[in-house]
Design a protein around this nucleic acid. Structure first.
Length: 111
DNA sequence: AATTTGACCATAA
DNA sequence: GTTATGGCCAAAT
């Protein structure tokens, strides 16, 4: 089981309508300081693994991080809103209220 | 084997 | 509020 696989396995558990953060995913797979590498893993998804809900992962400030050619920030915002998550736009940055939408997994969720 | 690269984060100023 | 910096670490080069 490599690092990327662990990331995908866990991201698949984030329920619809909730979000997680890069750091939270890293912590949950026992590598709390590898948040940036979680971003690597999601970037590497490409069109393989269409079952991994990558838009549900945002940064620790509740903002949408990505800004690349494949997916604009607005695209991720659109996907999140489609799940019922409220995404506010502030100076061209997209913000999600983590107090409200952060996934708080139980031990059962992580099984 | 060594270096470079970031969809990150916490801290400091 | 902002920007800068150092640390981090798996993969790719």
């Amino acid at each position: 089981m490599n690092f990327y696989s662990e990331v995908y396995r866990l991201v698949k558990k984030i329920p619809k309508g909730k979000v997680s953060t890069y750091g939270q995913i890293a912590t949950l797979i026992s590598t709390p300081r590898a948040a940036q590498v979680v971003g690597f893993a999601l970037k590497a998804l490409g069109d393989r693994h269409p079952d991994v809900p990558w838009p549900r992962v945002i940064n620790a400030q509740g903002r949408i991080s990505i800004n690349n050619l494949r997916h604009a920030r607005s695209e991720q915002a659109r996907l999140l809103r489609k799940e019922g998550i409220k995404v506010t736009e502030h100076d061209g940055a997209f913000l999600v209220d983590l107090d409200k939408y952060l996934w708080r997994p139980t031990r059962r969720d992580l099984r």
